[in-house]
Amino acid sequence: MRYVTLTIDGKKAVVPASYTILQAAEEVGIEIPALCYDPDLEIVGACRLCLVEIEGNPKLHTSCSMAVTDGMVVHTESEKVVHARKMVLQLLLDNHPNDCLTCQKAGECLLQKYAYMYDVKFREHDGAYKPEYTDTSSPYILKDEAKCILCHKCVRICEQVADRQVLTFANRGFETKVAFDADMSIEESSCVSCNRCVTICPVGALLDKRLMGKTRIWDGEVTEFKCKSCEYGCDFEVLSKNGKNVAVRAKSPGEGRPLCLKGRLTSEFLNLDDPETPYIKEDGKFIEASWEKALEIEGILDKLDKMDSKDAEQC
């Protein structure tokens, strides 16, 4: 592998030539803020928050997409960069509800984090906002369009599973939005509630509905665990408050696995003190289901019952 040497904020970094500036910065312990970047997703360079200054180059460049070159000198927090970041954040906040007090995502929201970091505040203005629309049709996912910052992560992570691809960008320009199929409700759409999109949403636009109102990140304990529904083990978290396990949420898909509803429900059932009623989708409608049905173990239980009674007879 070929290595290159570059300087980032005065620090020397020696990294593989295939690295981007953002990856190289990470190597030397410099965090560059980014909203649309994720190491597991295709690079889109859309949010423009990770802009950096490269010496000898009059333009700012997105560090998520720009490859390193030998001798490159990068500034990640220069005056010019900070000004641009503030502007990006301001534009996003100008089109975002001032709702942090009651937002489920508060404390984990990247927009909140960076707005605090760069001291950008909500601005009162009479300009247009995204239309307020909350899709509550699913018992598992809540879509709050007004909070969406169009980072494209949900669409990309959904696209990664060939037979899903339920999410898309619709319309264009200021009217751009994230849509399920042909802009259907989540219930009507072909969404299988795997919650991949929820795990990656940096703001409160896509939320795990079964978590809402129960606890927020600072309010209790978060314990990571691996789902045991299949051998791959996707990463999950159990959230507890006052000594009670109140919710389970998907954290990230396991290597080569897509995340699935069955795994999440199984994890809920096994970990929660008081699991909520599960729902399954039939003919485009969510219906309440028994746990046996939701976990697809009806046949197994029947058989076990029969075997139990046989055993009893034999004894």
């Binding site: 339920v166 898309t168 619709a170 042909a182 802009d183 072909s190």
Partner: peptide, 25 residues
Amino acid sequence: PIEALNYISEVTGIKLAKIYGVATF
């Protein structure tokens, strides 16, 4: 018509979401 978009999706295997995304762009 939405029916036609669904039909295109079924026959070509292109996901409805993608078709809708392109049609509204």
